[in-house]
Computed example of a mutant assay.
Amino acid sequence: MARIFVCQNDSLGEGEAIKLERLSLAIAVVNSGGSFYAISDRCSHGNASMSEGYIEDDGTVECPLHSARFCLKTGKALCQPATEPLSTFPVVVVDDAIYVDLPEAPQ
């Protein structure tokens, strides 16, 4: 695992998302209800950035293009047109800083 710094936790307000690009991955880091989640930034249905999506109070994010919704905790696709889940990544908060644990790049 590679632990990647995202931002200070007070820099990511409630209902906001930030895009992180590392190791050929694009990841949306989201603050929902004071909890932080990391999911693939690309919608599994189309070429849309989930960091630009709509963060809902029920712990989901809605794709900005086609209204597909995904669970922030599990990445599960919750409605059409998406049927495939998004990848999720562990988020760790240390000393008021948000980090995402990413898999190591293949050797």
Results as ranks from 00 to 15, higher is better:
S67W: 11
G59L: 06
S51G: 05
S24K: 13
G46T: 09
C7E: 12
I39T: 07
S11W: 08
A105L: 14
Y37C: 04
G13I: 02
I55M: 06
R69D: 03
L23N: 09
C7N: 12
V29Y: 12
F70K: 09
L86K: 00
H66T: 10
L23E: 12
E84S: 03
I98E: 00
A2C: 12
G33F: 08
K76T: 14
K76V: 13
T60C: 07
S67Q: 15
L65K: 00
D58T: 01
S87W: 10
A77E: 05
A17E: 04
E104W: 06
N31Y: 01
D10R: 08
L78P: 00
S51P: 02
A82E: 10
Q8R: 13
G75E: 05
A2H: 12
L72F: 03
I4L: 10
E56A: 15
E104R: 15
P90W: 04
I27H: 02
F89K: 05
D96E: 14
E16K: 14
S44L: 04
Y37I: 05
G59R: 05
P103I: 09
A97L: 05
A2I: 12
N47E: 14
P64T: 11
G53T: 04
S24E: 15
A26V: 10
L78F: 08
F70Y: 15
V100W: 07
T88D: 00
Q80C: 13
G15D: 10
C7Y: 09
M1Y: 14
S40C: 10
D101C: 08
D58H: 03
